[in-house]
Design a protein around this nucleic acid. Structure first.
Lengths: 119, 119
DNA sequence: TGAACATATGAACAATCATTCATATATGAC
DNA sequence: GTCATATATGAATGATTGTTCATATGTTCA
């Protein structure tokens, strides 16, 4: 498939730049997964849940209580976080404990905060 | 406002943990901005644009050509990226050049890739 | 001035998403 | 077994969002 140049015909970019971009750009599937991961971080409730779990393992109702939200809303979001492999859970009797399942999250958040606090 | 414990009454969390979370959790406004930033990263088109700009400054039609998308779609997304202060632009005659406006992006993407490639 | 070109933008539409509500599942106590 | 509790989940709803289409803005050149 040739790259169509829709709407303009300037094509200012150098051939070597095009090659560089295509070499550095991850595969379509990776890009999709990457965007999907950031989409998970793109919701205040989920960010709050993750910040809570930075401090300690918690059960669903603890998180709900801490954030002042319903058990259902938290449970739905924990499912999203679990599917993204960002949290894991273990059952202890009736209680389901959730905890972090990734060491990169804090780092990613810190970098995000750096951007926000810039300028 | 008291934190209501909706739907359950287990309250397993220790008082000291609650204090720790509240101490570590950024202010509501910061959390909102953080989620908003990641929301910007949460779209394949925008991720591709940023990867393209990692290589070099480019004009709108170059990016459109490179990604095989319409000028309008790219222009709309560049506006989102600009509002998030992730890209900047300069005009040269008829042509508008876009480039990165933040050094954290690459780092954040790399951390995201680390998570994806895990396990 | 007017034509050609590069980009921006508003409205519309389909798709996605977060929360709520009602209810189902799972465990422990009795 | 029944009851109470902790969590999960499906459907519904309102809100947000990415792209398209048509058109407007801004620049260069003749």
């Amino acid at each position: 498939m040739t790259e169509e140049n829709m709407g303009c015909s300037c094509n200012l970019i150098h051939e070597e730049i095009v090659d560089m971009v295509k070499k550095e750009m991850p595969a379509e599937e990776i890009l999709y997964d990457l965007a999907e991961l950031f989409k998970v971080f793109g919701d205040t409730t989920r960010v709050k849940i993750l910040y809570a779990l930075f401090a300690a393992e918690m059960c669903v109702c603890d998180i709900a209580s801490l954030l002042g939200m319903t058990q259902s809303a938290i449970s739905h979001q924990l499912r999203v976080l679990k599917q993204a492999r960002l949290v894991k859970n273990r059952r202890d009797g009736k209680v389901m404990y959730y905890s972090l399942d990734d060491e990169h999250i804090k780092h990613i958040f810190d970098q995000g905060l750096l951007h926000i606090n810039e300028k």
